[in-house]
Design a binder for these strands. Sequence first.
DNA 1: TCTTGACCTTCCTGTTACTGGAAAGTCTAG
DNA 2: CTAGACTTTCCAGTAACAGGAAGGTCAAGA
Lengths: 129, 129
Amino acid sequence: MKISDAARRAGLPVKTVRYYADIDLVRPPGRTDNNYRDYDSAALAKLVFVRRARDFGFSIPECRDLLALYEDRDRSSADVRALAASHLAEIEAKQRQLAALRDELAHLVSACQGNDRPDCPIIDRLEAE
Amino acid sequence: MKISDAARRAGLPVKTVRYYADIDLVRPPGRTDNNYRDYDSAALAKLVFVRRARDFGFSIPECRDLLALYEDRDRSSADVRALAASHLAEIEAKQRQLAALRDELAHLVSACQGNDRPDCPIIDRLEAE
DNA sequence: TCTTGACCTTCCTGTTACTGGAAAGTCTAG
DNA sequence: CTAGACTTTCCAGTAACAGGAAGGTCAAGA
């Protein structure tokens, strides 16, 4: 299977698939005679797997770990769970940070008159006291 | 004022202050005889302003716009408000995205036994069907 | 006077996860 | 035989810095 077919089926840009091969994340099992990357169904499954993991916000190193667990028939689900739980904690931390940010910004926006006068609590808040 | 003093007072790393000067975001008003960047209180105020705006998640281009408004005594608060509101909308979009992510991931984590057996709904969810 | 240490300068590289583009080779259809 | 749609490698750029090298400057202490 040529790279564009693998990419289309995996739902990834060709450039990304090539990049994943470059960094040894998902390599095609071989090359054709004309030096084209040649993907099989196993590699395609890995591409799909990585795309989904990326959609979940896992970093490339995390995807690498997940992929290793995915391929390890003797894995323990505890290892997978630990990885996912750790990522979940990161997401929740970012959520808290974003929520605090949003609340204060929303407060400022609603406090600002939004007219043609220069007085603005948003600027005031950013200014040194 | 030397760069390390300005940086310390602004709560920024020296590298960052130098970077802001390089990209013409906040430039020191001049140089000393020995070619050291020389900051005054106005430049310091801008550095503080930018740091706070960055803390609020504004991008460098947005900071540039905010800084221009900050310096414009004839600004209309509507312009500031529009910029902040737009950024707020972005934050809220990211919040929704993160919330959806978190919910699904949390669901998967809680569904995973986390024992020494390989069966794992997290892997299953990432796998091609 | 000399030296040590703490500054400062510029310049270059690396980070994340790609994306865009150039130059060149390959294959298929008309 | 040629046009186009592929493919390849390699190089540059993205955001917002951080790290580090090589070298200049300055004040304090032996």
